[in-house]
Amino acid sequence: MLQLHEVSKTYSGGVLALNHVSLQIEQGLFGLLGPNGAGKSSLMRTLATLQQPDSGSISMRVGSGETLQWQGNDQQVRHLLGYLPQQFGVYRGISALRLLDHLALLKGIVDSKIRKMEVEALLDMVNLWERRHDQVAEFSGGMKQRFGIAQALLAQPELIVVDEPTAGLDPLERNRFHNLLAELGQQAIVILSTHIVEDVADLCDQIAILANGKVMAQGDIDTLTDPNATTIWQLILSREEVALFEEHPRLISKQLKRGQFELRFYGQHSPAPQAKQVPPALEDIYFTVLAQHQLLQPSS
């Protein structure tokens, strides 16, 4: 289990990126949702040892049964970590095979035979086997992303942190990657940060919604999207009628569908007589949390 306790981080410019974040993350897939600037990437970078928290602690019970504290143990953490950043580059003139082998050695896989097996298996896993001798720098965006996924899986990490992993992947690859993550979630903690709510909804057991550096909501995805909950209302309106509800305080989303607008509201009470109660989707929960914290601008 990964435990974050009161983790805070303020950047040198004075921006409070993480504000007393506390989370408990069990084995499996954990989704991290939040608008831009919510602190998701700060949290990911902190978990990935790329920056130190100003206060609070991070710890994890590892396979050996010991509890590993992040503070002062960067190198040990890096051994059990697989990290896929949102953007990364590679050196020019180096093949996928060689670069992955390089990273595998730096990861600590010393035995060359084992390393070879690991590298080749991962390249196959991410469907880059046939292009293993090509330069990574010449790869298309999707292929490069797959290389990133491969390197994140080196040495079977116990904690996998992935930031927008499916950006640039075609639908087929995206599916394959989702399956892979689901498979990995059986043995490791996988933290998935994304803007695509659907990905989280499809994959994750647990989620947290971050905004303004704080955890606004967290929990089991099934509980959050309980079909019996009576909190989400749907209203189908014509273009002329929409204006009446634009400023409604409980409006969480507005979508144009086949010439008509679908508006969704949260709350125990119906926003209009013609409103229909609907089972909440994860997206509704996400928007509701943001609206409750006055972070949502649905008219936009």
């Binding site: 790329l50 190198q75 040990q76 051994h79 970590l81 950043p85 580059g89 050196y91 730096l106 990861k107």
Partner: peptide, 11 residues
């Protein structure tokens, strides 16, 4: 080259 994003998290 942007490779630091991968390299810096290695042990």
């Amino acid at each position: 080259s942007g490779f630091d994003a991968l390299l810096d998290v290695q042990p």
